[in-house]
Design a protein around this nucleic acid. Sequence first.
DNA 1: GGTTCTACCCTTACGCCGTAAGTGTAGCCG
DNA 2: CGGCTACACTTACGGCGTAAGGGTAGAACC
Lengths: 226, 226
Amino acid sequence: MDTETAGTPAPRRNTLTKEVVIRTAVALADEAGTGVPSMRRLGDRLGIEAMSLYHHFRNKDLILDGMIDLVFSEIELPPGDLPWQAAMRLRSASMRDALTRHPWAIRLMDSRTNPGRATLRHHNAVIGCLRSGGFSIAGSSHAMSVLDSYIYGFTLQELSLPFTSSAGLEDVAGSIMEQLPHEEFPHLSEMLADRGLKGDYAYKEEFDVGLGLILDGLERGREGWR
Amino acid sequence: MDTETAGTPAPRRNTLTKEVVIRTAVALADEAGTGVPSMRRLGDRLGIEAMSLYHHFRNKDLILDGMIDLVFSEIELPPGDLPWQAAMRLRSASMRDALTRHPWAIRLMDSRTNPGRATLRHHNAVIGCLRSGGFSIAGSSHAMSVLDSYIYGFTLQELSLPFTSSAGLEDVAGSIMEQLPHEEFPHLSEMLADRGLKGDYAYKEEFDVGLGLILDGLERGREGWR
DNA sequence: GGTTCTACCCTTACGCCGTAAGTGTAGCCG
DNA sequence: CGGCTACACTTACGGCGTAAGGGTAGAACC
């Protein structure tokens, strides 16, 4: 065990690898909705001063890049042995899961511009799945655009809701209903009364409704995009 | 002009109204991608110390709420005298425009939980449009979910691109193409070569492709959702 | 063994941030 | 005139990312 013969230089001392730092940062971000940890908090958790982190990362953005790539690495790639629609269903669900498990991630995505390997691998696999499903390059591009937009947008809205459990839903909907001037917003009022208070407004199902609609539309347009 | 007879208390001195503050905050946020201004910068622009703002707003979140509501107020409501699909096309385009004009807005949306009047009015109008287009309550709910998810998600991705003008596109795509290990990500590589470098990859058109697909799907499911 | 080098970590400091707490004052009302 | 209130200011605190530079354990070479 002490005779390191690996190709990596085999660090000499406390060996604080980038991977450990990023994993810790993700774990900290997931704990209690405090969002992305500060350098000082991250250092604390690692038993290190904040400034020591700058020995491993030139600046904080590089840590954020790593965090995003770690999230992407958790998303299942579309299985190659399934029809493209089923494969897309799986990876879409997995993507929504990952973004929900790490609520801070989607807020970060639009500020990252350097995709990591896991991110590239993910996109590559998605395109590959579509192409072997019979989509042209243009078609794959359209399909990926609609699908990703939907998944990001849906999750963004889902995460912005002021409650977490489905139990809290009725309370919130109720208090909104009380404050809302019903004469001014009759349609909104009606929908909240019908959908919100019933309590059966499951987000998982809602996600699948939209996803199914989009997949059907893609199948219909598949041959047309050249 | 000096004899104020309006219902509002008619302020006595320097009259720094909430509306002016919020408008200034939006203007500052729009200038150079610095994002939402700090309280000190906002105060500076208004010729006021930062802390004086707390006389008008209990905390910064209330200012952010106001900024979001102002953005919503800029979105055109779906015209009542058009078929629902055409009306939705118009408000969707207007929504994307507003979110693009104020790139900081979409990042803020998921942290706001108190919708303003313009926001409520917007949602109410959208539901009303769908309902009079023949959708049931459940159907309107589904339609709104898919549409808003798509618009948010598409704009989010569009804003996260590392370039602004369509001129900068080719440069970026080119430099990505150089760095990318083509053997490892063949499909991604192929798509970038085909779509990116051609330079005709217009985002406006891409947006309309997905939107049309969704609207068609909604029309097809309209009668089915009860 | 002794020397040197370097990867790793630490200290101090700067200019930002949101905001708690308290102070001053101009202008209206009685 | 006196008092009140709306509006603005001052000072201060703890936290942020990070620039600049200092120290030291342990491997590498003589």
